[in-house]
Amino acid sequence: MSIFGTVRVKNGQYKIKGDFHHITPNMPIRNEEDGWKLMGITNPRAMTYMHSYGGEAPFFESISQGKILGTRCDDPDCEFKGTSYIPFRIHCPDCLSKNTIVDFTDICKNTGTIHTFMVCERFGAFNTLEKPIKFINVEFDGISTILMSYLSIGEPEMGLRVVPIFRTRNPTYTITDLSWVAEGVAEEDLPEGFTYG
């Protein structure tokens, strides 16, 4: 019987269980306009990777818990000391010292504004978001960078105030656990699994 591959870490090593690949037969590709001669072969590939979030793991844990963590350079010798980052940067891009992890949830809730956006009618394989996807880039007071995310409720426009929502029920532990809605949406109207945190 096939089961999803699962992974845990013990003694600093990955411990795996289940199936990490599935064998599907190769199939010939033939030319119907030339006597069905052989042209090639299909190569099915279904495989599960093990990917480390490393120093960003606190962020991906935090959004499943209704919080947005960012980082800040507190190195007194850095020319750009005090610069704050969302997306989370483990190291300061200027001095490369380890940044301080900061809970920016309140700043995000109180100052999130759409910098730009795009309503995308297409998506690629493995997409899990509803179509059309309302991509938004959100800027925050005091933060030097502009987070890319998606708007779940509301019509995007530049300057629109938005607030974060979190997939706190059955989180995926991916960036899709963080989304945004226009101000004023009732919690019971949020997409399934999402809360205001």
């Binding site: 956006f117 795009m118 297409r122 978001l129 996807i133 991509f135 890319m148 530049m158 991916t174 960036i175």
Partner: peptide
């Protein structure tokens, strides 16, 4: 791959926000 790809798996979307601006 962590901050953008899961958002639609469509590069056009990441590009097009700039086009929109």
């Amino acid at each position: 791959k962590d901050w953008e790809t899961p958002l639609g798996h469509i590069y056009t979307g990441y590009y097009a926000v700039m086009a929109q601006k």
